[in-house]
């Protein structure tokens, strides 16, 4: 093997080795890379009880309840299987809507209520003008699922 092809083999071996190591590393991390828990997982007791964690789901239409004389708001999130109630005090992001995906960061307070310190709206990958959205809704093709 001459020098040039030896360098070629070395570089290819390096790329291959690092790729394998990364795949193994990421597979091992999979569990910890979980960004949020679903309401089903939370109701099944899989979420940590002591420290804070994230809950992700869709805001249940009609469930938003603003408490009078405060910024506190209560709403339900769902993964289309189970629901849970989230309580939050503060300003909600622009994309917070009924039926849209959100991620809430918080922990269980006394009485088993989930109190969020932060509510983030999750945007989906769909971009279209309002007229197109209206047309899709009218024809029943609009995707309300707001994929999480």
């Amino acid at each position: 093997m001459n020098k040039r092809s030896r360098r070629k083999v070395l570089v290819l071996a390096l790329v291959f080795g690092v790729s394998i190591a990364t795949v193994l590393g990421l597979t091992a991390l999979e569990e910890n890379m979980l960004f949020f828990f679903s309401p089903t997982q939370v109701n099944a007791g899989e979420a940590p009880q002591e420290r804070s964690f994230r809950v992700g789901g869709l805001v249940v239409p009609g469930s938003i309840n603003r408490l009078p004389d405060s910024l506190t708001v209560q709403f339900e999130v769902t993964d289309n299987a189970e629901n849970m109630t989230v309580e939050y005090t503060g300003i909600l992001p622009d994309l917070f809507r009924e039926g849209e995906g959100i991620v809430a960061i918080g922990s269980f307070a006394a009485g088993g209520r989930f109190v969020a310190d932060e509510v983030l709206a999750k945007h989906d990958e769909n971009y279209m003008p309002p007229e197109v959205a209206d047309a899709l809704k009218a024809s029943g093709q609009y995707d309300y699922s707001g994929k999480m």
Binding site: H123, Y127, P130, A133
Partner: peptide, 14 residues
């Protein structure tokens, strides 16, 4: 380009 149905004009940063 038209405005976005959810984000309004903010999406234009795309």
């Amino acid at each position: 380009a038209p405005t976005d149905y959810k984000q309004g004009d903010s999406y234009r940063i795309i």
